[in-house]
Amino acid sequence: MIWLLDLDNTLVGRDDAFAAWAADAVARAGRDASDLAAIVAADQGGFAVKTDVARVIVDRLAWDEDLPTAVDRFRTGILDHVRAYDGALDLLDDLRAGGDLVVVVTNGTSAQQRGKLARCGVEAHVDAVVVSGEEGVDKPDPRLLEIALERVGAADADRAQVWMVGDAAHADVAAGRAAGVRTGWVSRGRAWTDGPLPDAVGTTVHDVVAVARGAALLAP
């Protein structure tokens, strides 16, 4: 099997890192819980326009700096706090030990995503990494998944043996469906509200992989 795995909030705790950084920044600025809530809400799970997030941060924390500098500041804060989820690296090793191919397929800038990979030690545990900022195309565009398959010499792989797994319905699941591969959604306790369910659903990436493996065993 071939696993195309999202990075943020699938293998590493990007939102946890942002929230931890924001809590520290709010405390240092002498602000309160309402400011923290506003900043976290503005981030939209990492999908908001970064300068829009920076504008809320600057306003709430009374920072005396321009928006690009504020963006750099909170991106650095995320890198300082990001961690791989418990057991995530072991899971990657287990998949590869079983003969599967594993590719991280992530949206974001090269510097930020490569920084997270390095901080969390992910790259040594996968066969390849594909970053949207390096390729000029973002999920949900299926071309990013095609690039990932090409990167591991699997451009002609049976799409029924390929899984796109991630936490974002509009990016990860949508990209998988557009590419004609099987899809897994990491719910993190959320309810699915985007139409037909993906092929596998679980609270964590471990849960999704377990469901997907079970589905593969039951397939004719």
Rank of each mutant, 00 (worst) to 15 (best):
G153S: 12
A171R: 14
I147F: 03
P142A: 00
V122Y: 01
L95G: 08
A84V: 10
R182W: 06
G202N: 08
R143G: 01
A118P: 00
R114T: 10
V137I: 14
G136Y: 10
K116C: 02
G180Q: 04
A175E: 03
D127R: 05
L101E: 11
L149D: 09
D100H: 15
A111S: 15
R188E: 00
R114M: 03
D167R: 05
A88M: 06
L197K: 13
H206G: 13
A168F: 08
L91F: 02
L101H: 12
D80I: 03
A97W: 01
K139M: 00
A175R: 01
D80Y: 03
G115R: 11
R83I: 08
A128E: 06
R96F: 02
G108D: 08
T204F: 00
L145W: 09
V130C: 07
L144G: 00
D100W: 04
A210E: 14
V165C: 12
A160K: 13
W163S: 06
H125Y: 08
L144W: 03
R182T: 11
R182N: 02
D86K: 09
R119K: 14
D94N: 12
K139C: 05
T193V: 15
V201A: 07
L95Q: 07
G108S: 01
A84E: 04
R96L: 03
V186L: 07
E135W: 13
V104F: 05
G189D: 09
L101V: 13
V122D: 02
A200Q: 05
D90S: 14
V181S: 03
C120L: 08
R159C: 09
V105L: 02
A179Q: 04
V82N: 04
D93A: 14
D199Y: 07
D138A: 11
A174P: 02
G153V: 10
D100N: 13
D156M: 09
E146R: 14
V201D: 01
A179M: 08
A88T: 07
E150S: 13
V173D: 05
N107F: 02
V152K: 02
G195R: 06
A118N: 12
V201Q: 10
R182F: 01
W163K: 10
V104Y: 06
G176Q: 07
H81N: 11
R119D: 02
E123W: 08
L91R: 10
D138N: 14
W163A: 06
V130G: 06
D158N: 14
T183E: 10
T203L: 02
V173N: 04
D156N: 14
E134M: 05
D194N: 13
M164R: 06
A171I: 11
A128P: 07
R114G: 00
A148K: 05
H170W: 07
E150K: 13
R83T: 12
V129K: 09
D156I: 04
A178I: 05
Q113N: 01
V208D: 09
G189Y: 06
D167V: 03
V105S: 06
R182M: 00
D158E: 14
L91H: 12
